[in-house]
Design a protein around this nucleic acid. Structure first.
Lengths: 155, 155
DNA sequence: GTTGTTTCGGAGGATTTTATCCGAAATCCA
DNA sequence: TGGATTTCGGATAAAATCCTCCGAAACAAC
């Protein structure tokens, strides 16, 4: 629910890059391999993130992608505005074209506080914070390897 | 964001039926016309809601759809489980296959309370309540007619 | 019965999202 | 210069979602 695959890949990739030493380009192939996502598709997404001025890209032998200066401070909301389109938190839950406080769908009043909460959290969660969370070892960015999965399920 | 068109249509249609005298079948054509959604597509959705035991359907001259006994007490959560699939609030925000309190993505801790809030509200909002909200005249179920739209924009 | 109305069920089309492929341009290194 | 590597850009394929069409079955009224 909520996020498209494209957005999920984008966020994962950006957090991954943020966990690496800044300034050293990371290969698309490495990111895709680590995250377990289709490399060719991720490449397209990375391209867009470059156009959105979040990433630098370098071609050739020492190429790859790295965060632009200050991009660690980027909140998820800003990233999602890029990947989901600018109106992704503004649309009516029930799909009405116009649904404002003045003229609203029957869910509007109940949904609004949730929407605000979501936006707040998405703005607060920066790549920096998320990268730290991963580096601490307490949180994961990728699926468990199947070997571990088997272990936890009692293999 | 959040809800598929199918889910939006389903919810709108069910609320609309709930605003009508119970027991009197409502035509698919009438619902689709009122909501401004594609009739043939809505018909498919209605069919599924019947299979989900939310609606009765009647064929022939006095046919149409009406809510099953007690269906007014149905919460949106239950409807969405039908239209979006059973895992639509359970999935990880970042798309990880497994993301639990034990082994979590970096958003997990921040996202969990929001998810719970969403589920709570979706469970609380029943067709009955939503229908009342519409009947009160304070909330709308459909887009404003273009004539009114023009009026509010200063035509 | 016959006729008209409505949902049912399956097949198929259109659009969007997700994903792949490949040649070209940029870059590094020998 | 030439070869290896990597992103870029466009075209294309695959899958999911959204939507349409049509014959058949059920039902009411005549």
């Amino acid at each position: 629910m909520i996020l498209s695959r494209t957005s999920q890949y984008a966020i994962q990739a950006l957090i991954f890059i943020a966990t690496r030493p800044s300034g050293e380009p990371v290969l698309n192939r490495e990111i895709a391999g680590y995250l377990g996502v289709p490399p060719a598709y991720l490449a397209k997404i990375m391209q867009n993130l470059c156009k959105g001025n979040l990433l630098y890209s370098f071609r050739g032998r020492l190429g790859g992608f790295c965060l632009r200066e200050g991009a660690e401070k980027t909140g998820l909301m800003q990233i999602l505005t890029m990947t989901e389109g600018p109106s992704f938190t503004q649309d009516c839950v029930l799909g009405l074209k116009v649904c404002s406080d003045a003229t609203a769908c029957p869910m509007h009043a109940k949904w609004l506080p949730i929407k605000l909460k979501i936006v707040a959290i998405l703005n607060d969660q920066t790549l920096e914070k998320l990268a730290r969370a991963v580096q601490s070892g307490k949180y994961r960015l990728t699926d468990l390897p199947s070997s571990l999965l088997a272990a936890t399920s009692g293999k």
